[in-house]
Computed example of a mutant assay.
Amino acid sequence: MTESAVSVAAAALVVAGWELAARAGIIAPQFLPSPSRVVIALWTMLTEQNLVWHVVVSTTRVWIAFLLAAALAIPIGIMMSSYRIVGAALEPMIDFIRYLPVPALVPLSIIWFGVGEETKIFLLWLGTFFQLVLLVADDMRRVPHEFVEVARTVGASSRQVMTDVALRWMGPTLIDNLRITLGWCWTYLIIAEIVAADSGIGYVIWTARRFVKTPEVMAGVVVIGLIGLITDQLLRLLHRRLFRYL
């Protein structure tokens, strides 16, 4: 049996057990509705509540924040590991900020940016950048020093050492770290979209929670999980195609 078949069988077993437990009344439906009720709620949300629009809005917010975080974290992380003075100046501050709980910074974010899109993107960026920059710095530190010395010996410039040695070495782990931190970015979506939002999956989930519409809450959670699963598999495929030699 292939790995894919095992994954599908395991997921089907979990869903079947969940359905049986819900139908047997072991778990009250207001706490955990059956998968069939979640599917019905999901269909209703797709056909009557513009769920696709909310998905597009949330996905756009996540990708804007994630790409902005990656665009800043990759060069800063490389500089932190390449130049000791940069690492000494930035790493303590980054370590301090990355341990701050993002929900605690929501009031400050509103004061700084108001209640528009900037606040939502900032909160998503905040939960991603400070984690990613340290991962990139660690990847850069793992580049074998002897590779750099050999490149210098044959006359490679600093730019060539960076592009032809360092980035090629750290490429596989960099893609993996981007994939992981993209998942982290999605985990902050609910926090970002409860800030005066009127669109997005987080807004849909939060609104359903207020009216104790548990099937709709679960449907929103399932949608986020499916988006994450699809995105993760696409990034895994990209990883395999870029680094066939691994």
Score class of each variant (00 low, 15 high):
1 M>V: 13
2 T>L: 01
9 A>E: 03
9 A>Y: 05
9 A>S: 11
11 A>G: 04
11 A>V: 08
14 V>R: 02
14 V>Q: 04
15 V>W: 00
17 G>C: 12
17 G>A: 09
19 E>F: 07
23 R>A: 14
24 A>G: 09
27 I>M: 14
31 F>D: 12
34 S>L: 00
36 S>Q: 04
36 S>T: 07
39 V>I: 10
41 A>C: 01
41 A>L: 02
44 T>Y: 11
47 T>L: 13
52 V>W: 08
53 W>G: 15
59 T>D: 00
61 R>H: 11
62 V>H: 01
63 W>A: 10
65 A>W: 00
68 L>C: 14
68 L>V: 15
70 A>V: 12
71 A>D: 02
72 L>I: 14
79 M>Y: 14
80 M>F: 07
81 S>G: 15
83 Y>K: 09
83 Y>F: 15
91 E>K: 13
92 P>Q: 08
92 P>W: 06
95 D>Y: 10
100 L>E: 05
101 P>A: 12
102 V>Y: 00
103 P>T: 05
105 L>H: 04
107 P>S: 04
110 I>C: 05
112 W>N: 12
114 G>K: 04
115 V>H: 06
117 E>R: 09
119 T>A: 14
128 T>V: 12
131 Q>F: 15
134 L>R: 14
136 V>Q: 08
138 D>N: 12
138 D>A: 14
143 V>W: 04
148 V>Q: 07
149 E>F: 04
152 R>N: 03
152 R>L: 02
152 R>I: 00
153 T>K: 02
153 T>S: 13
157 S>T: 15
157 S>C: 03
158 S>A: 13
159 R>D: 04
160 Q>D: 07
160 Q>T: 10
161 V>M: 14
161 V>D: 08
162 M>T: 06
164 D>Q: 14
165 V>Y: 01
166 A>D: 02
166 A>M: 11
167 L>G: 03
171 G>P: 07
173 T>W: 04
174 L>A: 10
174 L>P: 02
175 I>M: 07
175 I>G: 00
179 R>L: 05
182 L>D: 08
182 L>R: 11
185 C>K: 00
185 C>T: 15
188 Y>S: 11
192 A>H: 09
195 V>P: 07
202 G>Y: 02
202 G>N: 05
204 V>Q: 14
206 W>R: 10
207 T>E: 11
211 F>Y: 10
213 K>W: 12
222 V>H: 06
223 V>Y: 02
227 I>Q: 08
228 G>Q: 09
229 L>Y: 13
229 L>R: 11
230 I>G: 00
231 T>P: 03
232 D>E: 11
232 D>H: 10
233 Q>H: 06
237 L>W: 08
238 L>Y: 03
239 H>S: 09
243 F>N: 06
245 Y>T: 14
